[in-house]
């Protein structure tokens, strides 16, 4: 049987975007240290239901750190204190008995709040739709081994492709910049030979959409990299900076 701890939670509660929200204090009693942060919230929610208080709404799904749905800022840190860990994989053994824990939603203009700790991340969808794909008509693909891809390129593309799209980078960035997300998407495809034909327009359109969605600008704080559960490196942002300028230049030249 695992140890248990008691915590004081300060949870952001807000019925919807147009009603102001506030922190509400809830005790979290007898929390097993082996349980995850979300399981702790489940336990707290069960006690709220027993008191006829509406449970706290929070996004979650796979609970194994891959779907990117969970999205909590815990004591000012997106996904909490453990490095390379989503909220659902953060275990209570990393907290001490008696701790006060602030739980907040992702905060960014581009991620409007829906309810309590749930925000709307469809801005990422629109960025993806702007160019985060390779136009390969189904059925027309050549044999996979017809174009060898050096292992290091494939590995590097995989490093970028590991992004789970949770938005912690935006949440953690003091400017709410989405550069880590966008750079991962652009780099993944720019590193592969299949991604070359659309490389220019992809970078230009995705960055343009990112800007239009109201994300801030990257000022190289690297807070994003520090909280990223998929360990996406900020060197991809550097890659995107270069990629975008060359793409913009190519596009400008082609218009002449």
């Amino acid at each position: 049987m695992s140890d248990t701890i008691n915590l004081t939670l300060k949870v952001w509660r807000q019925p919807n975007a147009s009603t102001p929200g506030k922190f509400v204090e809830y005790p979290a009693k007898n929390i097993p240290t082996d349980c995850s942060f979300l399981e702790m919230l489940d336990i707290v929610n069960e006690t709220l239901v027993a008191q006829n208080i509406e449970p706290v709404a929070f996004d979650h799904d796979c609970r194994e750190g891959i779907c990117g749905m969970c999205s909590l800022v815990i004591n000012g840190v997106a996904h909490g204190p453990e490095k390379a860990t989503t909220t659902c994989q953060l275990h209570m053994r990393h907290f001490k008995d008696g701790d006060t824990v602030y739980v907040e939603p992702w905060r960014a203009v581009a991620f409007p709040l829906i309810k309590d700790l749930v925000v709307d991340r469809t801005a990422f969808e629109r960025i993806q739709q702007a160019g985060g794909y390779i136009s390969a008509r189904n059925g027309s693909a050549p044999d996979s081994n017809s174009v060898p891809i050096p292992k290091q390129n494939a590995d590097c593309a995989m490093d970028a492709a590991a992004c789970i799209g949770c938005g912690a980078c935006v949440a953690a960035c003091p400017n709410s910049s989405a550069m880590l997300f966008v750079s991962a998407k652009v780099s993944h495809l720019a590193l592969l030979p299949q991604g070359q034909p659309e490389r220019t327009r992809r970078a230009v359109k995705m960055v343009k959409t990112m800007d239009a969605e109201g994300f801030g600008n990257c000022t190289n704080y690297y807070e994003c990299e520090a909280v990223c559960p998929a360990e996406i490196k900020s060197s991809f942002i550097s890659m995107l900076n270069r990629e975008y300028v060359f793409a913009a230049a190519r596009e400008a030249v082609s218009e002449i």
Partner: peptide, 20 residues
């Protein structure tokens, strides 16, 4: 055909040093 389609879409399957 599934593997081919996924590769064409940019799925970064594991590769050997020869690139295959």
């Amino acid at each position: 055909a599934i593997i081919d389609q996924c590769t064409a879409l940019g799925v970064p399957f594991a590769r050997e040093y020869g690139g295959l």
